Computed example of a mutant assay.
Amino acid sequence: MANPFQRARYMLSAHNMAQLPPDGGFEVAFAGRSNAGKSTALNAICQQGSLARVSKTPGRTQQLVFFDFTPKQNEEPAAKYLVDLPGYGYAKVPKDLQAHWQAFIDRYFTTREALKGLVVIMDIRHPLKDYDLQMLGYAVNRGLPAHALLTKADKLGRGQQMQTMHAVSREMHSRFGDSVSVQVFSGESKQGVDEARAVVANWLELPIA
């Protein structure tokens, strides 16, 4: 069976709630600090080289970016999307714009019925920063499942990868119980891509090989 995410195409960018697609389908959101490898992870899951922008200038995602991968001829009642959330960290943007993002994302998480899960991308060498925990908290408080990708795993040896994953898993469990799953991931070497793709497909109720 083909990878359904290969059909993903840019649909729209939303700067406020009024610009979002109609609420009622299925969405999985992707969050990550600037430089954590979020665009690379999205591209790897979708098996596309440049679906999400990869930039050497961190923090370029300044809106909620929706990717649509439901074929236009498909008459299923529920549309299905991947949503790229704004990244923080090194983003050099005005404080008022960061405040706007914060309020927008807060409302998105608390009111968006279509949201079925959250993927949080963390650099395996620098996991569990304040932003990561904040985004995971949004999902857990809403009762949504969350999945952490420890990206750039190719930068570490296998032993270090496993050691970090187990440490992060313990911390997640102590904070969030069983609501958050964790895996090692590399968009460069494709390590863990199939596992991550299966998690997202399950939340979206998509068949996948």
Rank of each mutant, 00 (worst) to 15 (best):
E205F: 07
Q134N: 10
Q62M: 09
Q62D: 02
L64N: 10
G24Q: 04
Q62T: 08
Q134C: 14
A209F: 05
I105F: 12
V168H: 03
A148L: 15
K116A: 12
H147T: 08
H15D: 03
F109P: 11
L136T: 10
D194E: 14
F26H: 10
D123A: 11
H15P: 00
M135Q: 15
G87W: 13
K80C: 06
M135E: 13
Q134F: 12
Y88F: 07
F66Y: 08
V199F: 05
E195N: 13
K152F: 07
A44D: 03
L149W: 00
G192D: 06
H15F: 05
F30R: 00
A103F: 01
V120D: 08
I208Y: 04
W203Q: 03
V168W: 05
V200H: 00
P4K: 02
L156D: 02
Q19R: 00
L82C: 01
G192N: 06
G187K: 07
M162R: 15
S189D: 10
K72V: 07
A41L: 01
N16R: 12
L51N: 01
E195P: 04
D23G: 06
K38H: 09
Y108T: 04
A2C: 06
G159K: 11
Y131H: 14
T57A: 08
N3L: 00
M122A: 01
Y108L: 08
K72A: 15
Q48T: 01
P127N: 01
I121M: 12
K129N: 07
A167K: 15
L156H: 05
L42I: 15
R60E: 02
R107I: 11
P86S: 00
N141Y: 07
R60I: 10
W101Y: 04
S181A: 13
L115D: 03
F66L: 02
S50N: 15
Q191P: 01
P71W: 03
L133C: 11
D23M: 05
K80M: 14
A78H: 14
V119W: 07
N202V: 05
G49C: 10
A91M: 14
T164V: 15
D106S: 13
N202H: 13
K116Q: 11
S50Y: 11
M122T: 05
L144T: 01
R112T: 12
V28W: 00
